[in-house]
Amino acid sequence: MNVRPTLEEIRRAPKVLLHDHLDGGVRPGTVADLARESGYPDLPTTDADNLREWFEAAADSGSLERYLETFSHTVGVMQSVEALTRVAYECAEDLANDGIVYAEVRYAPEQHLRDGLSLEQVVEAVLDGFERGGREFGIRVGTLVTAMRHQARSMEIAELAVRYRDAGVVGFDIAGAEAGYPPTRHLDAFEYLQRENAHFTIHAGEGFGLPSIWQAIQWCGADRLGHGVRIIDDIKVDGDRARLGRLADYVRDKRIPLEMCPTSNVQTGAAKSIAEHPIGLLRRLSFRVTVNTDNRLMSGTSLSEEFAKLVEVFGYGWDDLQWFTVNAMKSAFAPFTDRLELINGVIKPGFAQLKWSGTRPLA
């Protein structure tokens, strides 16, 4: 019998997360601790509960630029090896506690150099935290090193991704405000990564429209699209029929993964509401859609909660949640054998057990 999963049941499902920012998922108590230890003076409050409320309220503005401002505080306290290692370790624990079996977590090494760390020290500190956390909590975590699109260090960061790809860095990304900073500004980095047979994703189609998506795919060769929400602008709906434009048709035909983050997309104004989020239509049209958290602290969310919202709004059952999860694992930058092992040995059996253990019919 098909059932509508509850939040607690979803937490037990073996899930996959592809789009999660390390500096966007720090525990509020850890932010306060690290601020006190480092002498960081700018926190709006040092009480963990009040700090959580502040982050969520500041992020819930409808503006991507305002949303990004909240990161000044989390990044501000992540400027030492000890801080970076602690945040990565706790991230692994938090994701494992949410039932995630594989995750790719991204961060921008260039933002953690204020107190004298080198790029290499930043990467190694994060890798150390994830290695220890992954081992202790039974989760596989790969990292994506991110270049900021308004800066000029993308080649440096791309070289860093290649240098550490056998140590746990599984890919590269660019992030930051899209408007005025097209991905083609970093074309040399993407061409280098392609020559090195390296994986990369590009934030595109979140704060800007179809040109950002087109450039990310056709000029830069992105393996995945970070968000990709505005692909909906190339789809015309007439009643029960949908007509895809050339770009949307290409994205679907090529099975280009969309790293969608429903709550975050609403907060930044990329979607009006969960009910109006393009994910519903794109799932019906069988795009390669994945569900993600983006920034767990700012959005006050988890992957289980993102799934629960989709269940509530779209009436999804276990088959839908498994479809999203398998999509994510297929699209991961992990080796093919690892992906196959998790899909067939962990994800499908885990969902099968949950699916047939329920007794509550869908409404």
Rank of each mutant, 00 (worst) to 15 (best):
Q194G: 11
Q194E: 14
E196F: 03
E196V: 02
E196W: 00
E196P: 04
N197F: 08
A198D: 03
A198M: 13
H199T: 01
I202Q: 06
H203R: 09
A204Q: 06
A204K: 02
G205F: 01
E206C: 03
E206Y: 02
L210C: 06
P211W: 01
I213T: 10
I213Q: 09
W214I: 00
W214V: 06
W214E: 15
A216W: 04
I217H: 06
I217T: 03
I217F: 04
W219V: 08
C220L: 02
C220N: 13
G221V: 08
G221D: 01
G221C: 10
G221L: 08
R224T: 12
G226I: 02
R230K: 14
I231Q: 08
I232Q: 13
D234Y: 04
D234N: 10
I235Y: 08
K236Q: 13
K236T: 13
V237Y: 01
D238I: 13
D238R: 15
D238K: 15
A242Q: 08
R243Y: 15
R246V: 05
L247D: 13
A248L: 03
A248Y: 05
A248H: 09
D249G: 08
Y250K: 07
Y250G: 02
D253E: 14
I256W: 05
P257K: 02
L258I: 07
E259W: 04
E259Y: 11
M260D: 07
C261W: 04
C261Q: 02
P262G: 02
T263K: 14
T263E: 11
S264Y: 04
S264D: 06
V266D: 04
V266Y: 04
V266P: 01
Q267N: 12
T268I: 13
T268D: 00
A270D: 07
K272A: 14
S273N: 02
I274Y: 14
I274V: 15
